[in-house]
Design a protein around this nucleic acid. Structure first.
Lengths: 190, 190
DNA sequence: ATTTAATGAGACGCTATTGTATCATAAAGT
DNA sequence: ACTTTATGATACAATAGCGTCTCATTAAAT
């Protein structure tokens, strides 16, 4: 019933377009098709319009993130190690965050993208609020600000990794210290 | 000697293009010229190419940032309040950071842009390194990571302000707490 | 008042990209 | 083996944006 070629082309296109657009947001659909090893016509058969393609990548990205976080977010946040684990799980996906942020202007009009995004944001905010109740997270900060910090620091980490300023290991370490303790010198040790 | 009209058109173009591109990165030069209340031909007389225009905005943005920070960065970082003052000075310029980040792919090829950028980054890193020596900033973190955190959190703040999720005042407060102390609950108070 | 030159309006050619349509081929399903 | 259909190649029309040029107008400089 379902032709294997469809799935194969679809994968090749989603993978290639993600990689190509990540490094050149202005890339034409021809370039993308070439990089995917697929005819331009085939690209249009799978994704009728450019917006459509971008939305598809965004949705896949959001689903990947969801898959990596869903289990962790389901159980209540009780100790700091859970945050460390979340960051560890999310950091390898920083490219996806990068893409979503970079293309936000183009994809924010898509209903499914928005729905997924808001859904995940809501889940994350609930998790964080629980963490605040449990004393793991500061109650001085608003949940949405903590979400924003997490998001933007993942982006920073991926940036520094991609420019080889930091190794992935270093980046993760720095991110956790900075996120959890801030940048202040250790005055609490007084 | 110098015709006032030149300066006036130039200002109108720089201001309008910054605002327009901030909200629609794909805006055409026609739209920009319209918004500036200037003919399209005039735009081309001032900025021969699109890249040229983008670079000009970037350079102006970097100069604005430099003007706002130079004095503060010149005197050594000795106490936390200096950081708070830097953030206060920088937060109103978050739109400029936003622009630079959003257009980075398009402007990173310009020599002057790169020079200004690296120069400011270097100054900031020196300031931070001094702050670490003085015990104001954590020595566990690499200067470039602290820079990245500052940058990305300014971006986050401007985002939340622009979406009306946080008021400017709230955003500044949350930013400072998060940046200096991190998101952890107060375990040091034990 | 006269000269200078920046501007606005518009026409023009050019290129790149988009999206559609066609048709032979070859791979997959039965 | 036979049928179905996804694909690749190609041609095509349509659009949009870019960059150049011209010329009358009008503001500014002297």
């Amino acid at each position: 019933m379902t032709d294997r070629r469809i799935k194969r082309s679809n994968r090749a296109l989603l993978d290639a377009s993600f990689q190509v657009l990540l490094h050149n947001p202005h890339a034409s659909l021809s370039e993308i098709a070439n990089q995917a090893g697929v005819g331009r016509a085939t690209l249009y058969r799978h994704f009728p319009t450019r917006e459509n393609l971008l939305a598809a990548i965004a949705i896949e990205s959001l689903e990947i993130v969801e898959q990596a976080t869903a289990k962790r977010l389901r159980c209540e946040l009780r100790e700091t190690s859970a945050i460390e684990q979340l960051v560890s799980a999310l950091l390898p996906l920083a490219d996806r965050f990068h893409f979503l942020q970079m293309m936000w202007t183009d994809i924010e009009l898509d209903a499914e993208v928005c729905a997924l995004y808001e859904q995940q944001m809501a889940a994350l905010e609930r998790w964080i609020t629980a963490g605040q109740r449990n004393g793991v997270l500061s109650e001085q900060l608003q949940p949405q600000w903590i979400v924003a910090m997490l998001d933007s620091m993942l982006y920073s980490a991926s940036w520094l990794i991609s420019t080889h300023a930091l190794s992935p290991k270093e980046a993760e370490q720095q991110l956790l210290i900075g996120l959890l303790n801030g940048i202040s010198g250790h005055k609490p040790t007084g």
